[in-house]
């Protein structure tokens, strides 16, 4: 792999008694779209939070552009975060300001650019996600898909190097789904970003990902390009990709013998 922007080495993370990750290893190549997939509930959002420095792991290193996030001071972490963007599942727009102000928020917070210039930048970013006409609407007036696109405009406002997408396809109708998919791909190419997409919508994600990881059982169980994964023979991978109801992840929750329980 040429130039990993993010490297996760031997990551062990526990939440209380439960081990979420056990010696996880990951690399995200610069300029490419990397997908992280897996069954729901294994903590994919947690992984993004770990990369962003919001959580500290028990063990391991998370290198962002060569520097370990876990060991950074607060000031260094904030500087690193300026180069990252995160798109949350719900968009997480600030409900007390308009869409325009939401997108302008990061610019106003971190720069001292004059308002006229900020206005142009915000309109450009909104145009790139197709929401320039909705600039004056409040977040409560936007539909779910539009809110997500507005949040995306806010994330790219300061041109970050890395964007992390947390379940961007969940609960979208086919049209919005198509919009998001094409946006992620186009933005990655146009702005030369590195993207990490966390999702369990296999077909959608594999259609745009350059490289993918499947995480289950606290570690990576498969990795490779989209074609490699689709051609894999590992039963866990096959069950996940094909979406089969029964396989290594059982359909039945562990229980006693059926006949015995019915007739006792």
């Amino acid at each position: 792999m040429a130039n990993p922007l993010v490297e996760v080495k031997n990551l062990t993370f526990k939440r209380g008694e439960r081990t979420i990750y056990d010696k996880l290893n990951l690399r995200v190549e610069q300029g490419k779209i990397t997908a992280i997939m897996g069954p729901s509930g294994i903590g994919k959002t947690t992984l993004l939070k770990l990369i962003g420095g919001q959580l500290i792991p028990e063990q391991g290193e998370i290198l962002f552009d060569g520097q370990d996030i876990c060991k950074m001071s607060r000031a260094e972490l904030y500087r690193a975060r300026n180069r990252m963007g995160m798109l949350f599942q719900s968009g997480a727009l600030f409900t007390d300001m308009s869409t325009f102000d939401n997108v302008a928020f990061t610019i106003r917070e971190h720069t001292r650019l004059p308002e006229a210039l900020i206005r142009k930048i915000v309109l450009m970013k909104l145009e790139s996600v197709g929401l320039r006409g909705a600039a004056d609407l409040m977040p409560s007036e936007l539909s779910g898909g539009m809110a997500r696109r507005a949040a995306l405009a806010r994330t790219i406002a300061l041109d970050p190097d890395l964007i992390m997408y947390d379940e961007p396809f969940t609960g979208q109708d086919p049209i919005s789904m198509g919009v998001i998919i094409s946006l992620i791909k186009r933005l990655n190419e146009a702005l030369q970003l590195t993207s990490i997409v966390v999702s369990h919508d296999v077909q959608e994600v594999l259609s745009i990902a350059d490289y993918a990881y499947i995480i289950a059982d606290k570690r990576v169980i498969a990795e490779g390009s989209a074609q490699q994964l689709l051609a894999s023979r590992d039963p866990q991978v096959i069950q996940f990709i094909k979406g089969e109801a029964d396989g290594p992840v059982h359909f039945h929750y562990p229980a006693r013998d059926y006949v015995q329980e019915l007739f006792e």
């Binding site: 963007g85 995160m86 949350f88 719900s90 997480a92 928020f105």
Partner: peptide, 13 residues
């Protein structure tokens, strides 16, 4: 709950 606080953190605010 709507992760506005988390996104503030991720925006280095």
């Amino acid at each position: 709950a709507t992760e506005q606080l988390s996104s503030l953190e991720m925006m280095a605010v």
